[in-house]
Amino acid sequence: MDVLYVSLQKKLVHIGARLLVSNRNYARLAEVGRLETPKVSGKYETGQLILHRVFGYRGVVLFPWLARVYDRDIPQHRSNDEEPNPGVGKEVRGRTHTFYQVLIDQRDCPYIRAQTEAVTFLGNQESSRSLYAIPGLDYVAHEDIIPYVSAEKMPLNHELFDKFLTQNPKGDPPFIAQETLKAWQNKNHPWLELSDVHKETTENIRVTVIPFYMGCRESHANSVYWWRYCIRLENLGSLSVQLRERHWRIFSLSGTLETVRGRGVVGQEPALTRTLPAFQYSSHVSLQAPSGHMWGTFRMEREDGYTFDCRIPPFSLESKPDGGSATPPETV
């Protein structure tokens, strides 16, 4: 197995199969674990320590979740006697795929290009209008996980780690769920539930969208439904690309169609380069109807000056009854 190194200084650098952390002047390395072979089949269990393949952070699996993945880069299935249509590139049937809810090591949070407070939810009290965020939670696809093992008793720095997990006497996986985590999972909070994932590639820029229903706020005048959506952009090409503008279209079941334009995303114009090819962020949208649709484009500028519109795959905004829907997480 390859050795996983992390410096006692800061900055994250993901080099091949090793994770290094260094400052600008020197690197002082310390072994924190050993990489394991990623699973081709099966799933990772609660308590598995992981390294994120793209963002390079250390984390631990809380529990797996089944999602329907709609990949618009995959051609539609056709009958044997049907002629191929080069213009068709939409996968209309979702394919079941395993994702994982993961705690992120807080020591790595300042150095990754993904928001680390991306899991948000509404307060339970009817009188509350508060929006809460749980720090250091992420949803990770099975193929983005590199497993590792560590001899440390507390290998992950996160305020919820020892509340959710405890050492496994059998050692495989090294940690198991505490009753707190089991109870949290069994409540099946709608704001935790991942059900659909949408993907599409334009000019080597891969866009992945994961929408979450957050709940409804009711008043004497109307009802307002809220969703969170997480977007990941990844540059699959060799030339650097920078996101300059966003253009959204938001359709509500009430019949309204809203257009939103603006510079960058979440106050940034992220560059996707060879060394930093990915960027991930979350945002929110509300409708005065229980369902709707969103779609749009990102205006991208390549390092050679070429500009193009990168498509954001259309996705549904669907509300759910209290307590979630019929797509529960897998058992811990």
Results as ranks from 00 to 15, higher is better:
A326M: 13
S282P: 02
E200Y: 09
E234D: 12
Y225F: 15
M1W: 02
R53E: 14
G87K: 03
G89P: 00
I112V: 15
R72V: 02
Y100S: 04
G267N: 05
C310I: 01
Q106N: 01
E36H: 00
G89Y: 12
Y148R: 00
Y229E: 10
D309L: 12
S223L: 10
V149N: 12
V21K: 11
V3M: 06
G123R: 05
P211W: 03
W295M: 10
H97Y: 05
V260E: 05
V92I: 09
H52V: 08
I134H: 08
S22C: 09
Y139F: 15
T208I: 13
Q76D: 13
Y132I: 01
C310M: 01
G87P: 08
R28K: 03
H247Y: 09
P190F: 02
V260Q: 01
G87R: 06
D196C: 06
L243R: 04
T297Q: 01
E218K: 15
L62K: 00
G262Y: 03
E179I: 04
E245K: 13
F315N: 04
E301C: 11
F55M: 10
F121I: 01
M1R: 07
I15L: 15
L49N: 06
A141H: 05
S79A: 15
E126R: 14
E203A: 14
R274G: 13
V3Y: 05
A114P: 04
R129S: 11
E234S: 12
D108K: 03
L257N: 09
L49D: 05
A17S: 15
V6C: 11
G89R: 14
S79Y: 15
G323P: 10
P169S: 05
Q242I: 09
P314D: 02
P86I: 11
V102L: 08
L137M: 12
G59K: 00
G264P: 04
V69G: 06
M300V: 01
V265I: 13
P86Q: 05
K90Y: 12
S238G: 10
H293V: 13
G323E: 15
V140H: 07
V32T: 06
C230V: 15
G59R: 01
A17E: 15
Y44H: 07
F164A: 02
F121Q: 08
Y225N: 11
M154W: 02
E330T: 13
R299P: 04
F175L: 00
P75N: 08
E218A: 15
S252T: 02
R217A: 09
H198F: 12
Y57D: 00
T331C: 10
D309P: 07
T273A: 06
Y148M: 06
N25E: 08
R261F: 09
M300D: 03
R244V: 15
A326T: 15
A221N: 13
V285H: 02
